[in-house]
Design a protein around this nucleic acid. Structure first.
Lengths: 249, 249
DNA sequence: TTAAAGTTAATCATTTTTAAGCGAATTATT
DNA sequence: AATAATTCGCTTAAAAATGATTAACTTTAA
């Protein structure tokens, strides 16, 4: 069998099943495990799949799979996130200079943006591509790329952000708590979020109800520094601490 | 049978079946394998098909498999570019701080990079993703994204580049001429290339033979400022003006 | 923590495929 | 008709792909 044919078959199988073992591929394609491993390495090198010990996984469907366990809940909150994203998109005006944080909720936001007069800045590689394909004016901040999320992070990213003055920023969060404020697991991502909030006139945090009461290692902002856009508020005390827009589902 | 007739037949067969082996074509067209291989090489050079070990594949049906959508536009001189990319990749050492310019030839270069000790900086969105999927340490420069090429350009990009000091830079070009030097159609991309060359100890320009003698609106460097990596040199005068590495095809 | 089980990369021998050179045949040019 | 240029198929040395083997590595579970 031709190697390219195998590549295509393997790719189809992986994208279909999400994950596959070397043994499975070996028996299904009637090829030695050595060859399958070599193929998987090649496909991984090309960035088409993600290889791991024992087999390989699709890249597409696993966005977030490699991130952290919260993402399981993220798929469940799909409808809520859409509502939040839809509402957030209406906030963008012609003269706005908008920062869009990397993350799944903000990625959804981009789908609903219609304003092509505004200018957009993001730290998400995939977000930047998405925006540019929509035909918007897009800047991306410079810095180191984080492997799992394809987001720009680190001190260079922070420095790059500092030269901007946003009118609006849309930020994602992992946790939102009365005491701990907005928090996230990665310190470098937290620094980026923090700077983006500092550098914008108004910062909106997009948070579905599953985020409430959750605390993660690094706090990037106090509650009162940002407006929260959410689907349903479990606790009145939040609205005393910050401005909350509750989007009806 | 005329070679042009065969080209057409081969093209039809490949586009119909997606992949085909040399042996198949040889028996079906009743021609020697040598001739089939020569034909496939020619069609590959023209960018009509993609040749690989054992046979060839259609480009249309495999869009997105071999290349990202951005780079489908210029598929000519594929074989030459591959040779150039392969050689260029061997130049990267452990301690290198490498700049990789956006473009098709440099994109191919990434496929052959093996050094994971070096640090990479790029202005290509797709280049950055490709590098990060390979598990390398990657920085992307900040700035405005150009829609057609998904490359970072503009004054912000130039400013972002200025903070780096590269040991090696790999640059693509549209034209290379004895009088006009290295040139490209877009002034903003030219500024980026110019800055990258300035900021690196050694700059390599990857140029297949189709680039020689061509002049585009904006010159980004004189010949003597860079080393040229090419497949074949049409004119000895080039080697008097600059350092040339000719990669045998 | 350690041992057992499972998985991998590296290496080697074998087979397959290729590129390059060469002369014969065909086609184009003078 | 003679000469040059191109095309073609064969041969051969080199390159690439493959599958088996094994030592090193990772994971799992005691």
């Amino acid at each position: 069998m031709l190697s390219q044919e195998r590549y295509k078959l393997i790719l189809d199988i992986i994208n279909d099943r999400n994950t596959v073992t070397v043994a499975e591929l070996s028996s299904e394609l009637d090829t030695s495990e050595s060859t399958i491993r070599r193929d998987l390495t090649a496909l991984d090198r090309l960035g088409k799949i993600r290889k791991f010990f024992g087999g390989a996984a699709s890249i597409r469907q696993n966005e977030g799979f490699f991130e952290d366990k919260v993402s399981v809940r993220e798929t469940q909150m799909h409808e809520e996130k859409t509502k939040i994203a839809k509402y957030a998109a209406t906030l963008i005006n012609d003269s706005d200079f908008v920062y869009i944080d990397a993350g799944t909720t903000t990625s959804r936001l981009i789908d609903f943006i219609t304003n092509d007069k505004a200018t957009y800045v993001t730290n998400g590689i995939t977000h930047g591509r998405k925006l540019i394909h929509r035909g918007f004016k897009v800047y991306i901040i410079g810095g180191r790329i984080k492997e799992t999320t394809e987001a720009i992070i680190g001190t260079e990213g922070v420095a790059s952000l500092r030269s901007f003055n946003f009118s609006k920023a849309f930020i994602g969060t992992n946790g939102m708590d009365l005491q701990a404020g907005f928090s996230t697991p990665d310190i470098e991502e937290a620094l980026i979020k923090q700077t983006a909030i500092e550098k914008s006139y108004t910062a909106f945090v997009l948070a579905d109800n599953s985020k409430f009461g959750r605390v993660f290692p690094v706090t990037f902002s106090e509650l009162n520094k940002c407006c929260v856009i959410t689907d349903s508020l479990p606790d009145d005390r939040f609205s005393k601490e910050t401005i909350v827009k509750e989007v009806s589902i």
